[in-house]
Design a protein around this nucleic acid. Sequence first.
DNA 1: CTTGTAAACTTGTATAACAAGTTTGTATGT
DNA 2: ACATACAAACTTGTTATACAAGTTTACAAG
Lengths: 241, 241
Amino acid sequence: MDQDTIQIEFKKDSTDLVSKTIGVITQYIRKEALSPGDKLPSELNLAKELKVSRTVVREAFRSLAAIRLINLSAGKRATIAHLDHGAMSLMIEHGVLTEQISVQQIYDVRRTIEVRTVTLASLRRSEAEAKSIRYHAMQMMEHINAPDKAMEHDLAFHFEIAKASKNPVFAIIVGAFQGVSRQSWSIGWRNRTQHGQREEMIQTHIDIADAIVLGDPLKANELMSAHFDDSIKVLIDAGLV
Amino acid sequence: MDQDTIQIEFKKDSTDLVSKTIGVITQYIRKEALSPGDKLPSELNLAKELKVSRTVVREAFRSLAAIRLINLSAGKRATIAHLDHGAMSLMIEHGVLTEQISVQQIYDVRRTIEVRTVTLASLRRSEAEAKSIRYHAMQMMEHINAPDKAMEHDLAFHFEIAKASKNPVFAIIVGAFQGVSRQSWSIGWRNRTQHGQREEMIQTHIDIADAIVLGDPLKANELMSAHFDDSIKVLIDAGLV
DNA sequence: CTTGTAAACTTGTATAACAAGTTTGTATGT
DNA sequence: ACATACAAACTTGTTATACAAGTTTACAAG
């Protein structure tokens, strides 16, 4: 597998070299039909081929790595990356941080998506996935006095359901919300102070898990809807925009 | 607004300088509570402050620009960016290109999201938005013999609805799918060959627009569901995975 | 007070150099 | 013939310098 010539041309109108180079590399990936794990040419070879400096190629690589199209690591050549919600996470966090997205809006999207993922998961989950989902629900109850751990199992619960939907796009989106959810989770927890409210919330998770285990999409759907109704209500009662 | 010291420390365990620098900059944005349009320090100042080379800062900037957290342009300082689906578009296209996401999976996500956006749009749309949505539906019919134009109005129709939902996250997600939708659109079009099938499809768009104009979320929802049912059926009939 | 322009600043690109991590190929010993 | 060790070649990470090109600032001229 020797170094074959990169024949894709630069767009003439584009502004800066780095942008053009990014374009060339993505076209190259497409043209060569590269798959996750496949190697890209070295920085130096690309630079020579495209007649730009190594600096430009490096900046292009960094850009592609930022949106997780490729992976970089010292000494190794760049490789095509597997899908990953990392970039979208940063984007969403940035949106919330700069007040372009509200927590409530996130919850509306989550509700929309997760009512669907729980339905699909009920229909498509493997035995292992069903087991994992139920495990995280049970662990939440186990750690009812250790909010940090309960939270992590809560997040994992929802993420596992998304993965069990067998649609990677859902998994990416749900995964992307984990960061911001982690930051608003304690608000929901602190505002469930009345007797049994936390147990009730966790019990809903267990019930959802049971519905998934039993392969009952309608029940799972209904419970997930109710869970989000409740969660959003709690957030609003807490005065969150 | 003079140059104040950046007090955020590097994480010690992180691997490479660029990653650390990205972390510092994002923390800086947070700490200073910067909003879209606000300026970041110049590359040289950041480099001096963080005691790294300008190269490292530049690569960090490029990374942040790639996920659209900041905007770069020659001669100007970097600024905080408005939310934008550009990065997510590339991610999704990469997923489809590398066969990690199928077109049908995209449509499932779109259906899930857009059944919600059309409901919200019916409730929240401004007059101008309602008008724009209806305009694009009408233009589709107008250009029934110019598929390229019809397609662009189709995409704009769905995107405008997402924006009218007043939840930027929906708009980002729907926007992110525009690229791949553009690539699969002709498949759907080519496979609606029977008499009146195309008119029917476009008429559904007009009916959805009317429901939005009238503020009838249930009707809009129902029509959008039917539209996606039909579209997905057409794709499957066409033999698309 | 406006306008024009030069100076200062800032980003874009190229080159050179070396450190540090990885792969490859070969010589060596068994 | 085969495994191991190790050096050489390759590759990415980081720094420094230099200059081109775009933008802002400050000041002088009218």
